[in-house]
Design a protein around this nucleic acid. Structure first.
Lengths: 109, 109
DNA sequence: GTTCATGCTATCGAAAATGTAGCAAAGGCG
DNA sequence: CGCCTTTGCTACATTTTCGATAGCATGAAC
């Protein structure tokens, strides 16, 4: 019953912080759109389906504080080295997405 | 400038659907808490820091529709085979979380 | 100086999440 | 059978967040 109470869900754990960060709208999308290189704020907004600058800016702040994204005057927003590590770690999920869509024809239109 | 318009966005690619699903609050957390085996709705709620049942139920519906989570009368909520594939694909990010926290001592308390 | 792109903020209505309470169904048990 | 507990889920009001549009300051180009 309460034999398995909370497991590793204490709030201090890195995975919890990461889950929290990624579980906000546009966070994953931003990281994904920056995978090929830096984008200006406007270009990023275009890539993110014209998401409102309010949230985008908030998420960029989050991601900058998380040191996954950085801003350089010349190029705009891009992944930090940590961000590029994230990208690498994310790739299996990218591959999974295809298997997922494949084995889940519950996606009519 | 518009030389790099949207890249791989739109087109309803699987990755976009996955990014959308995971970018909702508690989605990733739920999948994470179910990693070791099924939990009843109440136990899951406890594991998820007593999140409100409203959202949890909504996310469980999302995840069931996505065929990542299933419900069995006897055991509660658990990962489907697809869900277990997800878990595998997610592991690199779990490993990354530690490196991230390590190289980012910007997490005092 | 004018034009333009960039990075960012302001506002406000809409949507989503939170917190608490509660219910119907299923099972155990006297 | 009544009584109690657990489970899965819903209702509601409040708070938080998001979305859409407009707009501004800065800096570079022309």
């Amino acid at each position: 019953m309460t034999d398995r109470p909370v497991r590793g869900s204490r709030t201090g754990r890195p995975i919890m912080a990461l889950l929290d960060l990624l579980g906000r709208r546009w966070t994953l999308r931003i990281l994904w759109e920056l995978r090929d290189g830096p984008l200006t704020s406007r270009a990023l907004r275009a890539a993110c389906d014209e998401a409102s600058p309010t949230v985008l800016q908030a998420r960029l702040d989050d991601l900058r504080e998380a040191e996954l994204v950085e801003h350089s005057a010349g190029e705009g927003y891009g992944l930090t080295e940590l961000g590029r590590e994230f990208r690498t770690a994310f790739m299996p999920l990218y591959a999974f997405a295809d298997r997922w869509a494949d084995g889940k024809p519950t996606t009519p239109s």
